[in-house]
Structure formats: C-alpha cells, structure tokens
Write a protein that binds this DNA or RNA. Structure first.
Lengths: 194, 194
DNA sequence: AGTAGAGTAGACTGACAAGTCTAGATAGTA
DNA sequence: TACTATCTAGACTTGTCAGTCTACTCTACT
C-alpha cells in the first residue's frame, strides 16, 4: 500500500468531482479509492468537507511565469498566454470550472474564495505587470486592471464557453492563435506616440 | 384562471431552473405553479422533458440589432455590445448560463444545441458583419470569425466569470465600459493604411 | 341526465444516497 | 499477551425524489 487511505480518497474524489461534478456518491468515491465506507468517515466528517478540501487543493495549482522585470513585453505576455490557456482550456481545467460553477449556489463563500485565489489572483498579478509596462511607456496608459481583464478575456472568453459546451476541438494551431491574440492586444494598447 | 396549467408549469419551471438549477424537485415546481402532481404528468412525460422544453424556449430569446447595412461601424458594434452584455451579464442570463453549464454532461446534445442557436448564432451573425466591414476597408482584413470571437470575449469574458462567482457588482458605468471596449477593439482592427 | 376530459389531493412504490452502527481483521506497541 | 488504533465488510436508518395510482370534483358538451 503505497499511499495512505486519506490520499487515495483525496485523489479519487478529485478525479470524480472533476468528471461528474458534486453529484458523485460516497459509494463511488470509496470504491474508486479501494477503501471501506467507515474509513471515509474516519478522515472526513461529511462529503461536503471532502469537497471543500478538494476545492482548496485545486486552487493551489495556479502558478504563472510573470516576472515583473522582463524587458520584452511581447515575450512575457506570450508566456503568460500559453500558461493561462494551458490551464484554463485543458479538459481538466474546463471540467473543474464546470464543477465549481455548478456549486456556486451551494457553496457561495468557498467558490468565491476559489475565484479570488485563482482567476482573481492572476488578474492582479497581470495588472501589476501591465501597470509597470505603462509606467515605462511600453504600453498606452489606461486603467491597468481593465487592460488585464481584456487580455484574460481574449485568451479564454468565447473559447472557454465553446469548449465547455463540447463544441469543436481545442485549437487548430495553439501557437499561431496565441500569437494573433498577443499581436492584437499589443496593437490595441500600443503607446500613443510611437 | 388567466393562464393555462401548462403555461403556469412552464413559467414556474423556467424561474426555478434558473434559480436553483436542474436539481429542483417536481414538488417545488407544481407548488409554485399551483397545480396538482398529476396535472404535471398530463402535460410532460418526465422532468427531463420539461427541462428540455424550457431550454428550447431560452434559446428563442436571442435577438440582436446587427444590421449589415449600417455605415457607422462604431455605432453598430456599440449597439451589439450593449445588447449582448444586457443579456449575457444580467442575473437572468448568468443564472441560465450556470444551469446549462452544469447540465452539459447529462444533456450533451441539448446543451450543444443551446450553444449553437444562441452564442454560436451570435458569433456567425457578427462574423458576417465584420467580414462585410473588412471588405469595405473599414477594418483590418483578418479572419472575421476570429475577430468576432475576440469581440465577444472582450464583452463577456472575465466579467462573466467574475459575476458568475458573485464577485462584485455588475458594472460601475456600463456606458463608458462598453465605450472603452469598442474603442480598443476598433484600434486593434483599424485598417492598416489609414 | 349522463358522459368524458381535465383538474385536485394525496397515498404509495422503488430507487438511491448520506451518514450511523456493529462486528471482525490486522498491525503496532506496552 | 493484552490493548489500541485503524482498517474492512456490510447491514441499517432516514430522507428525498421521480413517477404511479386511486378517488374525488368540476365543467362542458350531447
């Protein structure tokens, strides 16, 4: 037995919540984990508690290559774009998004916390970077938070919905699509007196 | 009795599906409609059938002020922007989006149909309009479908997620926000030889 | 008057799920 | 050996919900 009972429960629940949403029975979780019913309740008081724990772990997965000192704005944004899209548009990320969104009414504080520490945290990181670029005259001076929202929207707006609904493939050519998005974005926010 | 039993069931179900998602009991629906249990089954064979009917009605609500002949591109896009955002970011639109997204695994064909006839239909309308503008040299010539995706993303990308998660108010100043988005968009796709 | 259709009220069934409880197995430790 | 903690196996309780069924009422039509 390489993994502890708790870890096996956790992994099984994480996969099942992603696949089927919150409506997975405890029986399914314990059978996937290969664990007895009572063992579940030895580690988690309720199913809700397990869900909360899994959600909190999902939040930890966000890490972004956004170094504030990078002199090449285009390069930095391109890296960010690939990293963000790889997470948000992956089957995993999409399924997690769906699971969380569907549980917003049941867990309002938790889901809000998930938002703040993942998407919201990304936004504020990006906002800082853009504010920096604006101060140095490498970008048109606008509200940096608004500009950050625009980039994140362009990277995973319509496309996230489309993929959520299972319409079409992920992308024909990720590289060139990201290139086009970043190009357009830099045109939109090019310094006024170039 | 002003409304037929069927209409009352339909309205009650539409409101409750929006508010609570698919997990609303038949008891709740009939009690809200003020109707007996058997009457429900006189009109709909199953709860799923009612859900499908309600979803199909939701699709009908999309109508857009996109006249292909409008000579003022900015004016046309601004109208589109307001109309799209009024629908997508309203409490109603957001709740419906959540309900549908959470039921994607259970009703894959239906939800796909919903997407195609609402968001997807908007995209193709907008695509035609943009292609037109590009042909006339009023916009930079790029893939019009990609350009349409960008506009829809900017109008309801990050913001839709934020509102879905119950973070913050709808908007401080809708008018100026839409103005900024359309401005930026037109800058991004301004003709190359202005 | 009589009949059919559509309504109400509410009991009932069968399935399923969360959480509790009992009993026994296994392993580590004093 | 004896004790304790954690595990397994699975029965059990309680509650909910979709869908069925019975019995009665009301109204329209012939």
């Amino acid at each position: 037995m390489s993994q502890s009972v708790r870890d096996r429960l956790f992994e099984a629940a994480s996969a099942l919540f992603q696949e089927h949403g919150y409506d997975v029975s405890i029986d399914m979780i314990i059978s996937r984990a290969g664990v007895a019913r009572q063992s579940f309740y030895n580690h988690f008081p309720t199913k809700e508690a397990l869900f909360v724990a899994v959600m909190r772990e999902w939040m930890q997965d966000v890490s972004l290559p956004l170094s504030q000192g990078n002199p090449d704005l285009r390069d930095m944004l391109t890296r960010f774009a690939h990293s963000y899209r790889a997470h948000a548009l992956s089957p995993c990320g999409l399924a997690g998004y769906r699971t969380i969104v569907s549980q917003i009414p049941r867990f309002p504080e938790l889901t809000r916390e998930v938002f703040d520490t993942s998407i919201g945290a990304m936004l504020s990181l990006l906002t800082n970077v853009l504010a920096d670029a604006m101060e140095q005259g490498r970008m048109r001076a606008v509200d940096p938070c608004f500009a950050a929202e625009m980039l994140m929207s362009m990277l995973a707006g319509y496309e996230r919905s489309r993929l959520l609904f299972g319409v079409g493939p992920v992308c024909q050519d990720e590289e060139s699509r990201v290139g086009e998005i970043v190009d357009g974005y830099l045109r939109m926010y090019a310094p006024q007196h170039a």
